[in-house]
Design a protein around this nucleic acid. Structure first.
Lengths: 250, 250
DNA sequence: CGTATCATTGACTATCGTCAATCTCTGTGG
DNA sequence: CCACAGAGATTGACGATAGTCAATGATACG
């Protein structure tokens, strides 16, 4: 049974047995972190790199006026701060949304990983997919009305969680509040609530008690014009993109 | 006289004479591209990497309904598509906003660059700064009202252009239309116009005939709560951040 | 000049935010 | 077992920000 990191990185291409073993040896020493705790704060420059192995965390910034913007969800298999190798300090914070387990990986171990070309390439790939996901977040905030925006976000989470095996029957754990969803989508809590009700009325989803249930995947994808290309799923051709959207032209 | 690329990459740390020479040898063979032309289209996987050496280009996506979202400005010294080394295809397009000059650099030449540790590190750094800038774009779209959003964008451009020596007297060339500004900020053309008028009335800027003039830099930074940390300017401590904003707490 | 592109304006609308109250749980202490 | 507190979800009323539409200016270019 491979760990989440291996599973995710093999999205690009399969590893040799040695690479897989090295990865397994590297991902050891899980610790638990409670919900709503900081893993790294803005301004810090941690010695270890942090890998989420279970639970939901997020990258976010808090503005001078106290409002918050979340710009990325970190799921099991995601690195928090590979970049601190190069950039001196964190320019944003990383906090847990739900209880998480985290592995602290020393810089040295990461350097050892990057000596293996296949792994180095996979890490590079993961970074680029993060960047691509961020670009889509800009599109989402800039050009989609609230209903589509939230729907698109749900499609993205569904696709990403499916890859790491955390979706069953189009349903997944999402133990976050509507206020946190608002901080993610750039919407007020009240408006998030209205949007969720709309999506429920449309029989697209149900959401409550920390669980998201997508009732009609195809309709949700159509509604939000979800095109999973930007996730560069590669090997992971799961059912989420077996029916690619034809280009809409109006 | 160093080229724009060298000048930009030395923001992290100075290069040896050999590294500087290698960079100079690599950046040869400029070609001109007219305004509003695609440099790379979505879906392509170019053989060469493209470096902007003068003019403004942008990363953008066009949505099914025809609306467009620009999510990054590419200035002289910026690479368009270093990532196509790893990701198979472009998930977005890159087009010129103004007339540009571009250097096409073959994959091989890039590989030769990355054999020099200092250069490899600098390229890695540049990629991470791009990502950080993208994060700030999400914050900007999600949590700032239109006036601050546009003001913040102007501060960012000012800081980035200053580093490469394209600002004189707080004034810089910006030959783009208000519609393009709208596609950048997630605003309608009409609203961009209203916002620009507001900023003019406040005596913060003037903008017209392809030229942006920041009348009161400090006031503009204060107004948009601009904190340049995310640009990781490093060596480039120019006057833009000689007066860092104290943390506002309300 | 005539045309095209961009900037500007006004009137109207709609999306979304704010405020404040209420409701629904869930867990806790008595 | 029940009352109560606290967190989060939900509602309604209202206002503000930003979009749409359509007309009008301004400028540049052939």
């Amino acid at each position: 049974m491979d760990n989440v990191l291996t599973r995710k990185l093999e999205g690009l291409s399969p590893f040799s047995q040695e690479d897989r073993e090295l990865l397994a040896k590297t991902v050891i020493g899980e610790r638990t972190v409670k919900a709503h705790k900081d893993i790294i704060r803005e301004g810090e420059s941690p010695d270890d790199v942090h890998l989420i192995t279970s639970g939901f965390a997020c990258r976010h910034k808090i503005l001078p006026d106290g409002t918050r913007q979340i710009f990325a969800y970190l799921l099991p298999g995601d690195f928090c701060d590979l970049h601190v190798f190069i950039l001196d300090v964190m320019d944003h914070a990383i906090s847990t949304l739900s209880p998480c387990t985290v592995v602290d990986i020393p810089r040295k171990a990461i350097l050892r990983l990057t000596e293996r070309p296949a792994i180095a390439r996979a890490l590079w790939w993961a970074t680029l997919v993060d960047e691509s996901t961020l670009r889509e977040a800009v599109v989402n905030m800039g050009r989609r009305p609230a209903e589509e925006r939230v729907a698109h976000f749900i499609c993205e989470l569904l696709a990403r969680l499916e890859v790491i095996g955390l979706v069953a029957d189009n349903m997944f754990n999402l133990p976050i509040t509507q206020a946190e969803l608002g901080d993610t989508m750039g919407l007020s809590t009240v408006h998030v609530n209205r949007v969720l009700q709309y999506l429920r009325r449309q029989k697209l989803i149900t959401f409550g008690k920390g669980s998201m249930n997508v009732l009609d995947v195809e309709a949700l994808k159509r509604f939000s014009r979800f095109n999973p290309n930007y996730l560069h799923l590669g090997q992971h051709k799961t059912k989420i993109d077996r029916n690619p959207q034809p280009g809409h032209r109006t």
